[in-house]
């Protein structure tokens, strides 16, 4: 199966524009970008995809070993860039994918020229004076919530929905299907996300980087945004007048404005 199909890649927008790759985080799939995608598509070539294991990706390609580390997700980003033969793309990563973007950039410097980190956190667990906001027990509680809520995922329907990007109608009738994930896969992604520590990778970021944070975000609080900003030399930090962890949904216009300004200033 091609990477195109495997990761359910979708390309829209201005073909002559700079390429912006939108990378969803832990939780749902590329639908997370649906409120900002049309506006970004006016100026840029927009690439969307689902990580293997999420959305309508090919579930059979999922391997626990690969997706138990952030490098596995970063490889998905790199392989999508390779599949489309991208050069100097802007990778916009939400939440944990902001860090996957950092790793992907290091692995494929020619293909990824700049980063937008939406509500990033390099480490979610409090440790040695660093405040990530969570304890290991909190993560266990999250895993419990994942076990209690299947959000429309079912073992019998999954093979029909997943890996069938050509037939979107199959999934549309199913409520919550954007976030419906095989519980075993979601558990691995949750552990990888919330137990990761990529603080040491931040200093290696030498490309233009925009950090977007929300005023109120329980997952990535302001201290964390400030930490990332300080750790990446020359990065730009924009605090959006928004609450929650998903400004692309709660404040789509402000998110688009910030991304557009950053990308436009990169020049050609």
């Amino acid at each position: 199966m091609s990477i195109h199909r495997r990761n359910n890649i979708r390309v829209t927008g201005r073909t002559s524009g700079r390429t912006v790759v939108l990378v969803h985080g832990f939780g749902c799939d590329q639908n997370m970008w649906r409120l900002v995608e049309p506006a970004l598509a006016q100026d840029f070539r927009v690439v969307l995809f689902d990580y293997v294991g999420a959305g309508r990706s090919d579930l059979s390609a999922w391997q626990e070993e690969r997706y138990s580390s952030l490098e596995g997700y970063a490889r998905d980003v790199v392989e999508v860039c390779e599949e489309l033969d991208l050069r100097d793309a802007v990778v916009v990563g939400h939440s944990v994918s902001a860090m996957a973007g950092v790793l992907a950039r290091a692995a494929a410097p020619d293909r990824i020229g700049s980063l937008v980190m939406v509500c990033p956190s390099p480490c979610y667990i409090d440790e040695d004076g660093y405040r990530g906001g969570f304890s290991a027990e909190d993560i266990d509680e999250l895993l419990e919530s994942l076990e209690s809520n299947y959000l429309g995922w079912s073992a019998t329907m999954a093979p029909v929905i997943m890996g069938n990007p050509d037939r979107p109608e199959l999934g549309e009738e199913l409520t919550n299907s954007f976030c419906a994930t095989d519980p075993d896969i979601a558990r691995v992604f949750a552990r990888t996300t919330f137990l990761s520590d990529s603080r040491k990778d931040l200093a290696g970021v030498t490309v233009p980087t925009l950090i977007l944070e929300c005023e109120q975000d329980v997952i990535a609080p302001p201290e964390v945004g400030a930490y990332v900003h300080a750790a990446i030399p020359g990065s730009e930090l924009v605090t959006l007048n928004a609450t929650g962890h998903c400004p692309q949904l709660s404040a789509p216009e402000a998110t688009v404005t910030a991304i557009r300004a950053f990308v436009s200033a990169l020049g050609r």
């Binding site: 639908n31 999250l142 919530s145 994942l146 809520n149 954007f178 949904l249």
Partner: peptide, 28 residues
Amino acid sequence: TVGGRLYHETHFAPLLRMQGRLGGIALE
């Protein structure tokens, strides 16, 4: 609970924004 908050931010809130409705979610 903190774990429930994580779940709320990563699943509940986004789905509610996208669908306008969300039902039967188990939280503490």
